[in-house]
Computed example of a mutant assay.
Amino acid sequence: MMVTKPVFDRLGFWWVGSFLVVLGLALWSPNARSVVHIYRHGSEAFLSGRPLYQVEVAMGYLYAPAFAVLYVPLLKLGPYLGDTLWHILGFGLLTFAAMRQVRKLSGQEQTWLLSFGLFLALPVALAALRNGQATILLTGACWFLTLSTLEGRRAESFFWAMLAIIAKPTAIIMLLLAGALRPRLIPALVLAVLVALAIPYGFASTDYVNAQYHDFVRLLTSMTVDPTGPFVPADFTAPFTRFGMPVSELDATIVRMFAGLLTLWLVLQFDRRLDSNIGGLAIFLAAAFYMCVFNPRVEQNTYAMVAVPAGLSIALLWREKGAEAMCWFLATFLFVTGLTSVDLRLHDLFHPWFRPISISIIACVLVAWFWTQDRQKVPVAGAVAHG
């Protein structure tokens, strides 16, 4: 097997090229296939003192009040410039997080690792990039939080934790893992949450903000695995629902709790066993996998969160000799997973049950590979499977 370096160095830059196409489409039609209008609606409602949430249907604006404040400057810039800057913010943050991770990996061919990993992740991540979903911002912030936590950087951890919790409340999972990894950072993480909660009070009356938080808590607690509601979850319960074996809310909660404890144990073991060069990637991959597959509010595009760390992990594995069949399988499987929505008929066939299965297989194989690594088995320069 030969994977030609120049070819994939160029193909990897399709990550940037595809994003430029996304920007062009966003400018051409700001509201087409986009969720950004929901963010604008939230900011407009906040500025006018109207309710942010539709608790009864658990749809529409699903973010913390601080997110509405965050988006206000972009709202003021209008749907063209504001939406463009929003897309750039998410894309840039995620890309720089991947670049920071790759710089920490030992060995040579770091440009190839980055470009090939991003190329493999592109089909899964492209729809979320096109839609301008906050998942992209969340992924970048959580990845930076992981790396800052492992390095023990208090100020950086505080900032990234605050941004992550503002982007989506599910970031609390990553904050809990960060606190378990570095207990001395717990005060900074707690302060980040408190600051994020306090931000809206600086821009609206106390009574109004209190009412929004009351509705926000009700909204979070009302999200279930009920397949009869307007939201169709794409988490681990989706395959069971699709094939006529729906999982009860109690059983799903038990599975999520067990998976959460297993993920906590796993990231602690990775922190102890792995060299710091690859430990951050392994830990974030495990955390992102949990946040996608076991989060009750998962959409198909949420899997963009695990796509990039999975792509980089496959590229890292590819540098090792003796795993050719596994590399081909993982790379092809990840790339093809993102192509199951290119056609409406394929989308109807595979949505929403296929992605949790495929991503689970890919993530579990990669986690198992990381588990076999230790401080003496870190990939080194020269063990490169491409010319």
Rank of each mutant, 00 (worst) to 15 (best):
P379G: 04
V232T: 11
G42Y: 01
A97Y: 08
Y71E: 07
F350E: 02
R33F: 13
L281G: 03
C364H: 00
S29E: 10
A383D: 15
R256Q: 09
T253K: 08
S106D: 07
W353C: 12
P6K: 01
I278P: 13
A310W: 03
D374Y: 06
S148H: 10
T237Y: 14
P227I: 04
R103H: 06
A385W: 13
G140L: 04
T4H: 15
L266I: 03
M99Q: 14
Y213W: 10
D374S: 09
V232F: 00
I359F: 10
A385F: 11
G17L: 02
S205K: 11
T253L: 12
A363M: 05
Q110K: 07
L266D: 05
H37D: 03
G280N: 06
R153P: 07
L334K: 02
I254F: 12
Y208W: 05
Q300T: 09
L94M: 03
Q212M: 09
H347G: 14
M99P: 14
L150S: 00
C364W: 08
Y63V: 03
G338M: 00
A178S: 09
D215L: 00
K76M: 01
N277K: 06
A26Q: 13
V69E: 04
Q376P: 13
D9P: 12
P65E: 03
L185G: 04
A363D: 09
V72R: 06
L11D: 12
F258P: 11
L262P: 15
S18L: 15
A234L: 00
W371F: 07
P6I: 02
F236Y: 06
T146I: 06
F236N: 04
F216P: 13
A167F: 07
P73V: 02
D374G: 11
R297A: 11
S48L: 07
I199C: 10
S358R: 09
N31I: 10
H351Y: 10
R256E: 10
P79I: 08
P356D: 01
F119S: 10
F19V: 05
W86V: 05
G229P: 12
F231G: 10
A198P: 07
A331T: 02
T221R: 05
L266S: 03
A238I: 02
L122Y: 01
A288H: 09
Y201R: 15
A196W: 05
W143F: 04
T302G: 04
W86E: 03
G279S: 13
M1D: 10
W160N: 09
L74S: 00
V255A: 13
R40M: 12
A282Q: 00
T237S: 15
T95W: 05
H386L: 14
A121E: 07
I88M: 01
A167Q: 01
H214L: 10
A288R: 04
I186C: 02
N301E: 13
A381C: 12
W353L: 06
D343Y: 02
